[in-house]
Design a protein around this nucleic acid. Structure first.
Lengths: 217, 217
DNA sequence: GGATAATTTGACCGATTGGTAAACATTACA
DNA sequence: TGTAATGTTTACCAATCGGTCAAATTATCC
C-alpha cells in the first residue's frame, strides 16, 4: 500500500528532489508572471513538463506549491539587506546595497515579480513574513541608519523611507521591466541600462544623503 | 427587435451612463486587487450590485471592461507628468512633481495598482499605450531635464532614470501599501506617512540633484 | 528476479469560469 | 396610453478550474 503524497517519507528520494526542484522552477515562472490567482496548476504542469496529477503528488495543493516557493525564495531575497553593515562606511554601504539590489533585479527578476505580485494583491499569503521577519530586519537596519544620521555621517532623514526608496527604485527595473523597455525604446534597452541605472541611483542617493558640510567648502 | 448591446446607440441613455459608471467603479476595485486574469466577472458583478448578464449587456467581454477602464484612467494618470513645466524652476518643478505623484498614490491607490498589475504581468493589454503616448510624453519631459542638466541648473544625470526613480518611489506607497504598513507597524501607519514620505523624497531628490557649487561655499 | 515501495498517468469529479439565449420588465416617447 | 426600444434576469452552455482515484508503470533492494 502506498501512503499518499511524497511528504510521508522522512528521507527524500533523488527523484523527489529533482522533481520538486523542477516543479518549483516552473511554478516560479508561472506565479511570477500571473500572480497566484491568475496562475493555474495546468500551466505549471506544462512548463514543468509533467502531468497535473504528478505535480499534485509532490505538492498537495496549489497553495502548498506557492508556500514552498515563497519559503525557498524569501531568505535569499533578503540577503542584500542582511549584508548591510553597521560598522562600514555609510557611503560605501549604501552604494553597495544599491548595487546588490540592482544585481538581483537583473539576475532574479522572477523572484522580484513573485513578491511584487503577492504584495500588490494584498499579501494574502505572506502577511506574517512581512510583519515578522521582514519588519524585524528592517527595524534593525533602520536603527543603524538612524545612528549614522545622528552622528552626522549622513543627512538627517527617516531611515524607513530611505530603505523604501532603495527598494522601490531598484526593484522597479525587474517589476516594471516592460515599461522601462517601452519608454527607453530599443536603443537603450540592452543590458547596459542596469549600468546606467546604477550610476544614476548611486549619484542620487550619495548626493541626496551627503551631510551638509559644516565648513562650507 | 432589440439590437444587442448598449454600444449600438450613438446617444447614450441616462441609465447607460449611470450603469457604466457603476460597473467601471466596481471593475477598478476588482482588477486593481487581483489583476486581469485573477479577476472574475462575477466578482465585479457582485461589487457593482448587479447580475452578470447585466454587466455583459454594457460591456461585451471582460476584456472590453478592462479596456474601457484603462482608457478612462490612463489620461488622468499621466496628468502630473504632463504638468511638468520646462519654463519653471527645476527645484520647484521636481518638488511639485513628487508631491503630485504622492498625492495620487494616496488618493488613487486603485488606479496605481491597476497599472502596476498590468505592467507587472507583462502589459499584455497596454503595450501600445506604453510604447506610444507614454514614451512620447516621457521623451519630451526628458528633453527638458536634459537641458536643465546641460545648463548646470541640476547635476548631470540620465533624465529617464530620474523619471523612473520618481515614479517608483512615489507609486511604491500605493502599490506596496501593505508592505509599507507592515514594516512601519501601527505607530507610523497613519496618513502621516505620506507627509513623512514627501519630506524624505523631496530632501533626497533636491539634495541628490543639486548641482555642485562652483564656488565651493 | 521478484516483492515492495515509489512514481506516473488517464479518466474523472464538482465547482467555477466567460459568455449566451430568450423571456420578462421597464422606460421613453408619440 | 400604447408601443417600441431599452434594460434586466433566469436558466443555461461549453471550457476550464483545483483536485481525486485507481490502475499502470518504474525504481529499489533483498
Amino acid at each position: 500500500m502506498t501512503i499518499p503524497r511524497a511528504a510521508k517519507t522522512l528521507r527524500r528520494t533523488r527523484i523527489q528532489e529533482e522533481k520538486e526542484e523542477q516543479i518549483l522552477e516552473a511554478a516560479l515562472d508561472v506565479f511570477s508572471a500571473s500572480g497566484f490567482r491568475g496562475s493555474t496548476i495546468d500551466q505549471i504542469a506544462e512548463v514543468a513538463g509533467m502531468s497535473k496529477p504528478n505535480l499534485l503528488y509532490y505538492f498537495r495543493t496549489k497553495e502548498a506549491m506557492h508556500r514552498a516557493l515563497i519559503d525557498r525564495v524569501l531568505y535569499t531575497w533578503l540577503e542584500p539587506l542582511r549584508a548591510f553593515d553597521a560598522e562600514g562606511n555609510p557611503e560605501t554601504e549604501i552604494r553597495s546595497y544599491i548595487r546588490r539590489k540592482l544585481e538581483m533585479a537583473r539576475d532574479f527578476p522572477r523572484e522580484s515579480r513573485l513578491f511584487a505580485n503577492e504584495v500588490l494583491q494584498g499579501a494574502p499569503h505572506i502577511e506574517d513574513e512581512l510583519k515578522g521577519p521582514l519588519k524585524e530586519l528592517v527595524d534593525e537596519k533602520a536603527e543603524v541608519i538612524r545612528a549614522w544620521a545622528k552622528s552626522g555621517k549622513i543627512v538627517k532623514c527617516d531611515p524607513y523611507h530611505l530603505i523604501f526608496s532603495i527598494w522601490s527604485t531598484t526593484q522597479h527595473y525587474a517589476d516594471f521591466d516592460v515599461q522601462v523597455r517601452a519608454v527607453l525604446g530599443q536603443e537603450h534597452s540592452g543590458e547596459g541600462r542596469f549600468e546606467d541605472a546604477a550610476r544614476f541611483l548611486e549619484q542620487l542617493f550619495i548626493g541626496g544623503l551627503r551631510p551638509p558640510d559644516p565648513l562650507g567648502g
